[in-house]
Nucleic acid binder design. Structure first.
Length: 937
RNA sequence: GCUUCGGUGGCGGAAUUGGUAGACGCGCUGGAUUCAAAAUCCAGUUCUGUAAAGAGUGUGGGUUCGAUUCCCACCCGAAGUACCA
């Protein structure tokens, strides 16, 4: 009787679904355990083999924890707002809701085939109005909050109004916009309402400000960096420039210190934490103020090296720095403006990463050195970013390589302030190993002393203050898109007003076109119904805007990360209509015990969501500040793309071996036309796309070869492998085992189906252990010592491996186990019982089937995990006498025969080496031939 | 460029704390079974070499009795880089 995975898998998937086998309850005597995956974005390409990697791992862990007696919450949902659905809508005119739902249905079908133990009664979709109602609600909360550094938490904005009324803003320590003025309580009382609103806006956690965006004039829209290739728009190849736009931002920077410190309280991978630390980028230093000659202004520059203050020979500003236009002299205006235009064409990433090209322009203005009063020329250069720090750099060419290169290139002066150190070739960037010189009162001091003395003097002359700087910038929250959460915001006298929360959700309006409007407004501007009537408290048509009760709505939508920043709380109580989740449910589940997802989200989702949860915590909306106790990263599964080469300007394609020296263009082709030897099936390719149908293919040795390259699996690279094919051919259990066997869960690895027959034949061997030709057959005798030993060895190994998320080695252990049982001809019922439970988290269908055949009426997912008993693997203690170099004498006590065999082998091979260990309990003995013995007690 | 991770046979990978490098699987070779094939089973398989032996964990150095493992420099690959998700 052969292993018929098709029937078995279908049977048990139906059974689990019918019995709601994995439904989690919000009250239970059992301890709770919450395992969550990063929910997928349902793309049009369907699920590929990379998606399930993390889901299989978390499913194994969930099933394992259920066996271990936990009330496990293992939910799944969809991050269903996003750009690809909208782009597809633009091309085809189909509503993103429609295509998104289709994609979700396809995902669901594919997920179901893999036998995951999700509690689907808790499914969420961020694009459902029942869900985004609460995203909007939280946005209003952010708007109505400010950050108090004294209490180190966010507080309601009404409390800030009271403070302003009583004592102005002079004594507060709040996170505010840099330019916010200081005022007294009396002054506050005299401000106009709109001025008050503007001031409050500079304290709110959700606020409006002018932000640089990638603007594409031809498409009339803002582009993501991913939509820009070599400075041109991906769609259409149009020019893209940096442009300022009024945008909503979230004041995440207020939480920099807490986000940094909070990393110590969570068990997340250390590299990921390190990435977040570096992203937050805390540095302690001074803000130095430079007067500008002939202007009543000061340039502020942040430095961690105030000790090098006498090495400053010029100042560099970002081209976007607000002073540039004003201070540029008449004769420099032309080239400065030209430079500003040029740099607006570069993306921020290009500006920082291009270190080879040195560019900049002199403004004609001079700053005054705060201590020596020397004149310092003010330059602009695009390696200085307006968004980082103050957008100004005090250049110390002798101590910073970038400043050094800049000075050399433009022949600016370089003052060497490092005594006896040669800077003729490069800057001296170290913090130790020097004494200062050419530095007035700092001469002969080292870094530490020089720094504190310089800071003291700068503070004395009121030209410097101590400052902690963070790289973390506030998060832009507006998107000029259709397919996202609408803001619950209308505008009155150009000031934003929040719609009362009792009228939520504000439902995404219908539009005819998903493109921006002709006058460059975001897509929501296409809606007829997108204005707010404050009398009716409802959305009304735009045409009524001249009615005094009707105000225009915000046209932007929220970014993808809005909905994904708090979804883990919603799973706890997904159908609650009065709250995003009841406090009772939030307290019961409290936090994710295990979160599984990719490290590519390290500085995006995984930082935003931590911030969001802190915010909710500050307002007593959730019971815990850290939402995920433990996190593991699953590595990306890479695809193996295929390229062919077209001779430039021709219709001729060359086999890979013929391209040497030729001017060719590489083209992705679908991997289904390639065989194992990287030969191309030309006939099939010609049928695929018209561009190939009449092309000429130059073979080598009668064959046409392609180039293979490992890269991200993606529909656009034609390298996607769907799990469906594997499920058809080998079944879900084989796929689950194979993906786990492929390598460590956290490592990126190329997909290769070559080895899948290994796991498939393992399952067959497992099945055949208990299936003779006449059918299912097990022995009811007492299990033999040997078989118990094999079983318990496996229980130990597998239990430990699951706890360590080392799933690949546990699959190996199963293979060894079945091979060994096979060689013993073991078909014992008791052994089989335990082995089934042990394997069931990995291969649930086959184990459930065998478990059922063994006469058990209850589902295998409900029974306790086997417990390791060391008695069964204990060897009789063998004493083996040896001596070393004829002098040392020990007697070894060994626990397993394996070690004895190893030592025997060595002693046989190296006659002179022998060990004799007496009265010591020795764990490990390592014998290295002819050299030394190391004994571990 | 910067941040983080990785580099071990023909391939995916294993190797508790610095202690026999290559577990397990794929592939390959030979054999059994078969009219034959598939499937299955058995044996072998890091490289050079008939062998003896030697070399070997990206490259070059260092620490150590001993390094895949620790340190320094470099090369290559992947991910992220603030509006993809």
């Amino acid at each position: 009787m052969s292993y018929n995975f098709k029937d078995i898998e279908l049977k048990w998937q139906k059974y689990w679904s019918k019995n709601q086998a994995f439904k989690a309850v919000n009250n239970s005597k059992l301890p709770k355990y919450y395992v969550m995956d990063m929910f997928p974005y349902p793309s049009g390409a369907g699920l590929h083999v990379g998606h399930p990697l993390g889901y299989i791992a978390s499913d194994i862990y969930s099933r394992f924890k259920r066996h271990k007696g936990y009330n496990v919450l293992h939910p799944q949902g969809y991050d269903s707002f996003g750009l690809p659905a909208e782009q597809y809508a633009i091309q085809t005119g189909r509503h993103p809701r429609e295509t998104t739902n289709e994609n979700i249905n396809r995902y669901r079908e594919q997920l179901d085939r893999l036998g995951f133990s999700f509690d689907w009664s808790r499914e969420i979709r961020t694009s459902n109005k029942e869900y985004y109602k609460w995203t909007q609600w939280m946005f209003i909360k952010l708007y109505n909050s400010w950050y108090d550094f004294k209490k180190d938490k966010s507080r309601p904005i009404d409390e800030l109004k009271n403070i302003f009324q009583n004592s102005g803003n002079i004594d507060i320590k709040a996170c505010e916009t840099e330019s916010t003025e200081k005022f007294s309580s009396i002054e506050w009382g005299n401000f106009s309402e709109s001025k008050k609103e503007n001031i409050l806006l500079s304290y709110r956690l959700a606020y409006l400000s002018e932000i640089d965006v990638n603007w594409c004039p031809n498409l009339g829209t803002v582009l993501a960096n991913d939509e820009i290739i070599d400075g041109l728009s991906d769609r259409g190849g149009y020019e893209v420039i940096r442009k300022k736009m009024t945008q909503w931002s979230i004041r995440i920077s207020a939480y920099s210190e807490r986000l940094l410190n909070g990393l110590n309280n969570i068990d997340w991978p250390e590299p990921l934490k390190e990435m977040q630390r570096n992203w937050i980028g805390k540095s302690e230093g001074s803000l130095v103020k430079f007067d500008i000659q002939d202007f009543e202004k000061q340039i502020e520059a942040f430095t961690t090296r105030a000790d090098t203050i006498f090495g400053v020979t010029f100042i560099t500003l970002a081209p976007e720095h607000p002073f540039v236009k004003e201070i540029t002299s008449q004769e420099n205006k032309g080239q400065v403006n030209e430079y500003i235009i040029q740099s607006s064409k570069k993306t921020e990433r290009d500006r920082i990463s291009d270190v080879k090209t040195i560019s900049g322009v002199f403004t004609g203005a001079y700053a005054i050195h705060p201590l020596s009063n020397e004149k310092l020329p003010i330059w602009i250069s695009d390696y200085v970013l307006a968004g980082y720090g103050t957008g100004a750099v005090m250049a110390v060419p002798c101590g910073d390589q970038r400043d050094y290169n800049f000075a050399k290139f433009f022949k600016l002066p370089i003052t060497n302030i490092f005594k006896d150190i040669d800077i003729s070739k490069e800057a001296f960037q170290s913090k130790d190993g020097f004494k200062l010189t050419n530095s007035d009162f700092l001469n002969d001091l080292d870094f530490k002393k020089g720094l504190s003395k310089a800071i003291k003097e700068l503070e004395n002359v009121k030209k410097g203050i101590h400052k902690i700087n963070y790289k973390l910038r506030d998060a832009v929250f507006s998107r000029q898109r259709y397919w996202g959460e609408p803001f619950p915001v209308y505008y009155k006298n150009n000031l934003p007003v929040m719609i009362n929360e009792k009228y939520l959700p504000i439902i995404l309006p219908e539009v005819d076109k998903y493109l921006p409007t002709e006058d460059g407004k975001p897509p929501l501007g296409n809606s007829k119904c997108w204005a707010w009537d404050i009398e009716k408290n409802s959305i009304v048509e735009n045409t009524l805007i001249d009615n005094k009760n009707v105000y225009p709505m915000e046209l932007n939508t929220m970014p993808g990360w809005a909905g994904s920043s708090w979804y883990f709380n919603r799973y706890m109580d997904p159908n609650n209509i009065d709250n995003f989740a009841s406090m009772e449910a939030l307290k019961y589940w409290s936090e994710i015990d295990l979160y599984v997802g990719g490290s590519e989200h390290a500085t995006g989702h995984l930082l935003y969501s931590r911030f969001w949860q802190y915010f909710l915590y500050d307002h007593n909306l959730v019971p815990v500040p850290d939402y995920a106790k433990k996190l593991i990263n699953q590595g990306m599964i890479l695809g193996n793309s295929a390229y062919i080469f077209r001779l430039n300007g021709s219709d001729t394609y060359l086999s890979y071996g013929l391209i040497k020296g030729e001017n060719v263009q590489s083209i992705h082709i679908d991997i289904k036309f390639i065989n194992q030897n990287n030969e191309l099936n030309i006939e099939e390719l010609k049928k695929w796309q018209p561009q190939f149908s009449k092309a000429d293919f130059k073979n080598e040795n009668e064959k046409f070869f392609v180039k293979r390259e490992v890269e991200k699996m993606s529909k656009s690279k034609f390298n996607v492998v769907s799990p469906d094919e594997i499920c058809d051919k080998y079944g879900a259990d084989t796929l689950r085992l194979y993906e786990m066997f492929l390598g460590p869960i956290d490592q990126a690895k190329p997909w290769n189906t070559a080895g899948i027959t290994g796991t498939f034949s393992f399952l067959n061997k497992f099945w055949n252990l208990f299936h003779q030709t006449q059918g299912f057959f097990v022995s009811d005798e007492e299990p033999t010592k040997d078989s118990l030993k094999i079983l318990h060895k496996t229980i130990k190994k597998v239990s430990e491996d699951i706890e360590n998320f080392s799933f690949n080695t546990s699959v190996s252990a199963f293979m060894i186990c079945v091979n060994e049982l096979n060689s013993l001809n073991c078909n014992n019922r008791l052994i089989l019982n335990d082995l089934c439970i042990l394997l069931s988290p990995f291969a649930p269908h086959i184990c459930e089937e065998i478990w059922n055949k063994l006469g058990n009426s209850v589902s295998i997912s409900k029974v306790p995990y086997p417990i390791f008993n060391p008695e069964f693997i204990k060897e009789s203690v063998i004493e083996y006498p040896v001596s070393f170099n004829g002098k040392l004498r020990f007697r070894i006590k060994l626990e397993t025969s394996l070690e004895v065999d190893r030592i025997k082998k060595y002693i046989l091979n190296h006659e002179k080496t022998s060990l004799y260990l007496q009265g010591k309990d020795i764990k490990k003995v390592i014998i290295v031939p002819k050299k030394i013995i190391n004994i571990v007690f």
